[in-house]
């Protein structure tokens, strides 16, 4: 990603916040909020794959949903091709959904069980009016070919397919409308490794073929390493580090990223690593820790970390980190 500056920004997220009110049992307690996403900014360049990683509750999926406006964000701006999409009306939004598609974790839950593959694909094309009716059949066969399903699949129902094949249907549906950006929300997490490999290969192939841009949301760092150009690490609703894949995996700067990387069990007993085991659980996003949100679990935390929230700052080319002591820890 050396030539980042010349690349076209496809999606730009500024100070995005997504708070969900929590029901309290008392009239007197102030209303509490789950600060699922709390002031994050990032951009996505055309043709790249940016991954968002983090543990459950870090806000990675919420970010995806907010961009798609599946939940209306509390605050912030989302620009797609320079347009502020949070102010789009229904009609504009529907048009945008043609360019902006999503693939979910559970393909079974996101495919209508009463529709055949043909109906599923047909519906997707009809909503966006991308393909004229007489040409739709050809287009459907083409789509199945892209995702590696036989033409017979058209007349079958989702339950007749295996998990991996269902995910292929989900991908075909997303492709049907000629999207530019696909948000993959844990798209391969539910699959066995051998099937996961097939889907990852497929996604990469399609990206090359159609110049797609991916926002890839996942908790699996090995998968993220395989598919991404850049990686963004989130913790408790905040961005802790964004960098090119190689930089992030080879020289992580944030202590959380380091701990996260060292926690992954590596399927190679020959590799001996120094392991950082974090103490305790992720704190509740309802009342997140003051200062740096990671300070309660950080092995290097100081008084400053408790009081001051670190800003996301650039250390090295395109490598952003939010830690007061990133330079010191890098040595």
């Amino acid at each position: 990603m050396e030539a980042t500056k010349e690349k076209k920004v496809l999606l730009k997220v500024e100070h995005l916040k997504q708070y969900f009110p929590v029901k309290t049992d008392s009239f007197f307690k102030p209303k509490a909020f789950v600060k699922a996403v709390d002031d994050i900014s990032f951009q996505l360049f055309e043709g790249e794959t940016l991954s968002i990683v983090g543990e459950s509750g870090c806000g990675k999926s919420t970010t995806g949903r907010a961009i798609l406006r599946l939940d209306e964000p509390t605050d912030g701006k989302v620009y797609y091709s320079g347009q502020d999409i949070l102010h789009f009306n229904k009609k504009e939004m529907r048009k945008l959904r043609g360019e902006l598609q999503v693939i979910f974790q559970d393909p079974f839950a996101s495919l209508n069980p009463r529709q055949t593959v043909k109906q599923i694909l047909n519906e997707a094309m009809a909503i966006q009016e991308v393909v004229a009716k007489p040409k739709r059949m050809d287009r459907m066969l083409e789509l199945l070919d892209y995702v590696g399903l036989p033409p017979e699949a058209l007349d079958r129902y989702p339950h007749e397919f295996s998990g991996g094949q269902r995910q292929r249907i989900g991908i075909a549906r997303a492709l049907a409308v000629n999207p530019k950006l696909i948000i993959c929300d844990e798209a391969v997490s539910a699959l066995d490794v051998s099937i996961q490999a097939q889907i990852l290969n497929l996604l990469k192939k399609l990206q090359r073929q159609f110049g797609l841009t991916f926002l890839f949301i996942s908790h699996d760092l090995s998968v993220v390493r395989h598919i991404s150009d850049r990686v963004m690490v989130m913790y408790l609703g905040k961005v802790v580090e964004i960098a090119d894949k190689k930089d992030l995996f080879d020289s992580p700067l944030h202590p959380y990223t380091k701990a996260l990387l060292s926690s992954i069990p590596v399927p190679n007993p020959a590799i001996q690593r120094e392991r950082v085991i974090l103490k305790g659980d992720v704190p509740s996003p309802i009342d997140p820790p003051s200062g740096c949100r990671f300070h309660t679990r950080c092995p290097f935390a100081t008084e400053k970390c408790k009081l001051e929230e670190p800003a996301l700052r650039e250390l090295g080319t395109n490598h952003f980190v939010s830690c007061h002591f990133a330079e010191k820890l890098a040595q």
């Binding site: 490794v193 290969n201 390493r225 590596v266």
Partner: peptide, 28 residues
């Protein structure tokens, strides 16, 4: 891990994305 014998074991190991190396395509 160093010398898988069964073709299934070999395939399984090859289909894993590796965290410490880059591959263009995964074996399936």
């Amino acid at each position: 891990f160093s010398n898988p014998k069964h073709p299934y074991t070999q395939g399984l190991l090859d289909s894993l994305p590796k965290i410490y190396e880059d591959q263009e395509e995964l074996r399936t």
